[in-house]
């Protein structure tokens, strides 16, 4: 399979995964609205919520990165600015994944 076809397929597989994860996101948002610190931590300590949060962070932020890269290609002329935006997009999405994994891991192994 060519690199382009692999990329296409990877994006579609992640998009299909995002369907149930979007449902979880809406439910989590409703559940965690107004929650205090201890109950929010307890929420993410639940195994299914831990898995959903990490899976959502990885798939949604990969999807975000791919989407924002398309916006940059479509609307920002190739050059220094588009390269800067591309780097910011990748760093930002990567940092988001790290934050979510760190917080979820802390609820299990943290002090």
């Amino acid at each position: 399979m060519s690199a382009g076809a692999k990329d296409w397929l990877r994006q579609r597989v992640l998009a299909v995964l995002l369907i149930p994860l979007c449902g979880w996101l809406l439910w989590a948002g409703v559940t965690l609205a107004g929650a205090d610190h201890a109950s929010a931590l307890a929420f993410f300590r639940q195994p299914l919520n831990s898995i959903a949060a990490v899976l959502l962070a990885v798939t949604a932020l990969y999807h975000t990165q791919a989407g924002v890269m398309t916006m940059i290609e479509d609307y920002v002329p190739a050059g220094g600015l588009s390269r800067l935006l591309s780097v910011l997009t990748h760093v930002g999405c990567g940092a988001g994944v790290v934050v979510v994994i760190w917080v979820v891991a802390n609820t299990h192994f943290g002090a």
């Binding site: 610190h37 201890a38 993410f44 932020l61 924002v68 999405c93 988001g96 917080v103």
Partner: peptide, 25 residues
């Protein structure tokens, strides 16, 4: 909107959760 507003805000929300009760409150 999701990329520019929700994704950064949700990550910030998770960050404050990891930083402690006061930032989270």
């Amino acid at each position: 909107f999701l990329a520019m507003i929700l994704a950064p805000l949700a990550c910030l929300w998770m960050l404050t959760l990891g930083l402690g009760p006061e930032p989270f409150a």
